[in-house]
Structures are given as structure tokens and as C-alpha cells.
């Protein structure tokens, strides 16, 4: 348990302070592509300097260390409650050390718990894996600015001319990009879910952020839509921070799950450029680090 807590604390530190390589690479490409001596270039240069300082000083890339989302694959029989207890302790300690901001506020009284612990925070998504001998832990820290520009559409949407097909999905996804402008700290990444109910649709859209940015969707139709959304968005001229410029989106990841005959939701989660996602594989008791992910 002590070893598990220490390992989760290190996972939180890395997630808060160190940018994943896949995202860093795409940000570097977008800096190279941007027009020189523009405010867009200024924004991207600042972003690059920021990534370097955060890693060097082991401090948060962004002060909004966001919602704390744990995605955990445990072997059958793994004790999820023990994991949760250790993770809560690690979160409280990471907050004390300044890897996480005090980010858990009582919705009725406005009182900040000061520890990041409270009803609904942090959140855990457990999956059991048959035959697994290790615990796979992935952590996403998702800031409030990008969370606030997420959007859910119910198709058909006559205002946007969006029917219940992939063309309709494309229309509403691009509307979400237009409405977000730079408010979600672009250039960002979209996680999209087609289908589900209102709650599961958003939940699956966020799980798309666990995919490496350079992977390809195994479904050819969704793969084509992902590529097309990025290409079209980058022709809109919204640019980094909404200053105008060439890069509006760094990526788009889409999944589809089944729906009710009566419902057709398209849920779009927006992840800011400060895409904080890390993972670690631990021994079954959580005490030993087997490898780091991403």
C-alpha cells in the first residue's frame, strides 16, 4: 500500500509537469508551420518554453490541474478499494506539494476542500482484465477551461442541418470547433463519441484521450472522419489561443457505441494543448513499477 501510494504520487507528478511525447511532437510541427512574427507564433513559442520550464522545475504545466481522472485496469480479484484509498492519499499529498492545485469545491457552499478530495473527486474508472498479472493505471488531468467548451448534440439538429448520419456528425463536430474558438486553450484535441446515453456518451468521448495522437482508427469510416475534421478545422483560421493562425486542432479521436433507437447523441470533449495524460504499469500489488506509458 505504501509502495502503491508512492508510485501513484510519481504518476501524478509526471502527469502534471511532463508533456507526453506524442503531443509535444505535434505541437513542434505546428510551431514550424506557423507564420513567423505573428501572435500565433508568439503563442506557440510561449507554449514550448512553458513545456520546457515545467519539466525542468517539476511544476504544473498549467495551474489548472483540472479534473483528476484515473483509468485503471486491474487483474480479476484485484482490490479496487485498496487502490482508491492509496490514490486518494497520493492526491492529497500531491496537492500539498503543489503538483496539483486545490481544485475541489463544494458546489453548495463554495468551500474548497483544500485537498482535492470530496464527493465526486477524484474519479475512478475501473476495468477488470482476465488473465492480467499487472495493474495498468492511466491518469488524465483535464482543466476547466477546456471542459467548459465541451458540447453534446442530439441529432437530428435542424438548426445545423445535421441528420442522423456521419455527415450530420461532421456538421456538429465542426460547430463545436467554431463555438470553442480559442477558449479551450487551443490548439486542442477533440475526443468524440457517437451514440450512448447522455452520460456514457461524454464518458466515452473522454476515453478517446487515452489514445496516442499518432494512432489510426481501426474503423475506416471513423478514421477518415478524424482526418477530415482536423484538416477542415485547420482551414478556419482560428489558430492558437484564437489569435488567428494555421493550427486550430492538433488531433481528433472518434468512437461509436450503440444507442437507443430514439437517441442519437454526438458528444465532444475538448482537450487543451496542455494535454496531461500519463500511464504506468504496476505489479499486481502496486508496489513495483514495471514500465511507464506514453
Amino acid at each position: 500500500m505504501a509502495g502503491l501510494k508512492e508510485n501513484l504520487l510519481e504518476l501524478i507528478r509526471r502527469t502534471s509537469a511532463e508533456m507526453p511525447d506524442d503531443v509535444h511532437r505535434v505541437l513542434t510541427e505546428s510551431l514550424q508551420a506557423e507564420e513567423k512574427r505573428t501572435t500565433a507564433e508568439f503563442a506557440l513559442k510561449t507554449i514550448h518554453a512553458n513545456i520546457e520550464i515545467a519539466a525542468r522545475k517539476s511544476q504544473p504545466i498549467c495551474q489548472d490541474t483540472g479534473s483528476i481522472l484515473f483509468y485503471v485496469h486491474v487483474p480479476v480479484g484485484g482490490d479496487q478499494l485498496v487502490f482508491e484509498e492509496a490514490a486518494r492519499e497520493a492526491v492529497a499529498e500531491a496537492t500539498k506539494k503543489g503538483f496539483l492545485r486545490q481544485n475541489s469545491v463544494d458546489s453548495l457552499t463554495g468551500k474548497n476542500s483544500g485537498t482535492n478530495l470530496g464527493p465526486g473527486t477524484p474519479t475512478f474508472h475501473f476495468t477488470q482484465t482476465r488473465g492480467a498479472t499487472a495493474v495498468d493505471v492511466r491518469l488524465i488531468l483535464k482543466g476547466g477551461g477546456c471542459e467548459n467548451v465541451g458540447a453534446q448534440y442530439s441529432l437530428p439538429d435542424s438548426r445545423l442541418g445535421a441528420d442522423r448520419d456521419l455527415k450530420g456528425c461532421r456538421r456538429v463536430i465542426l460547430d463545436a470547433v467554431l463555438q470553442a474558438q480559442g477558449k479551450g486553450c487551443g490548439p486542442g484535441v477533440l475526443g468524440v463519441c457517437i451514440g450512448g446515453d447522455r452520460a456514457t456518451s461524454y464518458a466515452f468521448s473522454k476515453e478517446q484521450f487515452l489514445r496516442p495522437l499518432d494512432d489510426r482508427n481501426p474503423n475506416p469510416e471513423l478514421d477518415a472522419l478524424e482526418q477530415e475534421i482536423v484538416a477542415t478545422s485547420n482551414q478556419l483560421g482560428i489558430g492558437p489561443m484564437g489569435f488567428g493562425g494555421k493550427t486550430t486542432l492538433l488531433g481528433c479521436k472518434i468512437c461509436a457505441v450503440n444507442r437507443l433507437p430514439a437517441s442519437y447523441f454526438v458528444s465532444i470533449s475538448y482537450m487543451c494543448w496542455a494535454f496531461r495524460r500519463r500511464g504506468v504499469v504496476l505489479s499486481a500489488d502496486g508496489g513495483t513499477i514495471e514500465k511507464w506509458l506514453y
Binding site: 508568439f42 510561449t46 507554449i47 512553458n50 511544476q59 504545466i61 489561443m241
Partner: peptide, 13 residues
């Protein structure tokens, strides 16, 4: 005035 969102370290310096 628009500061660069997310650039918490550059600005903290």
C-alpha cells in the same frame, strides 16, 4: 489583454 492560456510556468517566472 490575452495571456497565453496554459502557460503557467512562463508566466509564473
Amino acid at each position: 489583454l490575452h495571456a497565453v492560456g496554459g502557460a503557467a510556468q512562463v508566466l509564473a517566472e
